[in-house]
Design a binder for these strands. Structure first.
Lengths: 236, 236
DNA sequence: ACCTGAACACCGTTCAAGT
DNA sequence: ACCTGAACACCGTTCAAGT
């Protein structure tokens, strides 16, 4: 009886082009909620993720979500971990520790470029499993290099701080105006004009720097990684 | 007539120990609003700064604030600039550029330690005058060193990214639990236990790092600055 | 056990009305 | 010109009521 009914509904829905009301598959779960949240975050940005929007996208009541997720904070960090772990778990670590550090750094950089909402989250709870995975990659690579064991934590922290600093700043920029390859030159032009028009007494160095503002974000980011790396190497 | 009346009010208020209703001194201004905002942010944290709380602390209506300040964002950045500029303008730059960079870095570090609400703000709008002042300090110091002119912007960015990365992360930590000298050891103990209990297959390096987690924040921060500096020096 | 959706206690911001 | 404070359009979260 029930089966007949539900298959009838399916046929009707196929005709009307609406998704069928599958009792089993449609059941809420933390996984489904987190996935729906990620899709909203990716397509419409972080301010678009509300419990009302999420509930309507899942075709349920806003309170139902609280049965599976404690609050918005937990939801956001679950989304962050999901995205980070999915991205890292596929990659294989380079045998050269220096290259491995560059790789993980660039991976995080590109991940935040793709999901700007990560920027606010990534540096806020270092004990999250996804974040620990990033720390592990860097600490593991440093361990292979010839550095004193007691320096391991300090050096790892320096990399983490730099990487998260860059990504959260990049995410902040991206939140303002989405930068495409076409408007990128306009963007540089605007900032250069702005810097060039600064007070020469208060900001002489910034003014002089204005003409070199054009740069590739990835390259500049890696330059920082390389600077820290060569600082570490030159210490030994 | 009016003067008589107001001096009468003053006398009465002196007796009742209430502040007099000075028509001139009590007038709202952006400066007074920003100062009141800073004092709320410093004493009760960033989530305590609402227009209602601000209005009641200024003994006015919430809408009155909007006559002097466009919105909350403008208010927050005005508060940030106020605090940064006040802190920087007093200091004199060290003649040694390397020491000057360490000084400005440490100044920003300690400023965010003192005002944790700066952490969220500091890396979000690089064109703010206070932020430009920090950039200027670093760029100006780098200029004195013997580095190629076209590297100036990249190197400055690396420092800025690292400094803002550390400070925003520190502020995030401070937002969780206020760390005092007494509970600091407990904090290290907790994190060490937590790291030590991690899965040895997934997190071997983090586990091994656990015993070195005890550190001085300022020293670790400066170690990163020195690493970047020696990276720059070793390049020449 | 799981879901519903109205209700609650907040926000930032606006705006007619006052002085 | 400047201030008042009720009102508006939102939030995250709770909870009695349903299945």
């Amino acid at each position: 009886m029930l089966e007949q009914c539900s298959s009838y509904v399916n046929i009707v829905n196929m005709k009307t082009n609406k998704s069928p009301t599958r009792q089993r598959d449609d059941a809420l779960s933390k996984q489904r909620i987190v996935d729906a949240a990620i899709s909203i975050l990716d397509s419409d940005g972080e301010e678009a993720l509300t419990f009302r929007a999420l509930a309507s996208s899942l075709q349920t009541g806003s309170g139902a979500i609280y049965w599976h997720v404690a609050n918005k904070n937990e939801l956001l960090f679950a989304a962050m971990n999901e995205v980070i772990i999915h991205s890292i778990s596929g990659k294989k670590q380079d045998s050269d520790p220096i290259q491995a550090i560059r790789n993980i750094a660039l991976l995080v950089f590109e991940l935040v470029e793709e999901h700007p909402w990560l920027g606010n989250l990534i540096s806020r709870e270092p004990w999250q499993p996804g974040i620990l995975l990033i720390i592990e990659e860097i600490a593991g690579s440093l361990q292979k290099m010839d550095i004193p064991e007691e320096k391991l934590f300090d050096f790892t922290s320096v990399f983490i701080n730099y990487i998260f600093g860059v990504t959260s700043q990049n995410a902040a920029n991206a939140r303002g105006v989405k930068i495409t390859s076409t408007n990128r030159l306009d963007y540089f032009h605007t900032v250069r004009e702005q810097w060039a028009s600064l007070d020469p007494v208060q900001y002489p160095a910034v003014k002089r720097m204005a003409k070199f503002i054009e740069h590739n974000d990835n390259e500049q980011f890696l330059e920082g990684i390389d600077l820290i790396l060569s600082g570490i190497v030159s210490l030994n």
